[in-house]
């Protein structure tokens, strides 16, 4: 019981911390590409950890109480986590590509080879 609580606190703590960084980075960074860095990486990592806490809770509660409800909880959380990991970077790539094609250029950029390639 004590170890389960410790593991849950650690996983939820890491998850909430990185989700917080994601939304603060969204407010702090200067242009859309750097905001995408913060939003995609930090919220994906944070959501992985909060979901891992739920998976650990589900499987260990199933072990203790034997109620099949907790096993269903853990399995469905795994499916949701897989959906999240596949869809998040792909969505970020779609947004970045759409932003560059619609003419939003990176601010303070030292080099932009994509713009040069398009001009040729």
């Amino acid at each position: 019981m004590g170890t389960l609580l410790a593991v849950l606190y650690i996983f939820l703590g890491i998850g909430v911390f990185f989700n917080c960084l994601g939304s603060v980075g969204l407010l702090r960074f200067p242009d859309v590409y750097t905001r995408l860095h913060a939003a995609t990486k930090a919220t994906t990592f944070g959501s992985i950890f909060t979901s891992l806490a739920v998976i650990v809770y589900g499987f260990s509660s199933w072990n203790i109480t034997g109620d099949s409800k907790f096993r269903v909880l853990a399995l469905h959380t795994i499916v949701a986590l897989v959906c999240l990991i596949i869809t998040n970077p792909t969505g970020a790539h779609a947004i970045a590509r759409a932003a560059h094609r619609s003419g939003v250029m990176p601010r303070q950029a030292v080099i932009d080879e994509l713009k040069e390639a398009k001009l040729k």
């Binding site: 969204l26 859309v32 994906t44 970020a92 947004i95 619609s102």
Partner: peptide, 15 residues
């Protein structure tokens, strides 16, 4: 810009 708003919406969806 519009892409900024989409990024924010995507973040809200993940959260």
């Amino acid at each position: 810009t519009v892409p900024d708003r989409i990024v924010a919406l995507d973040t809200i969806n993940t959260l």
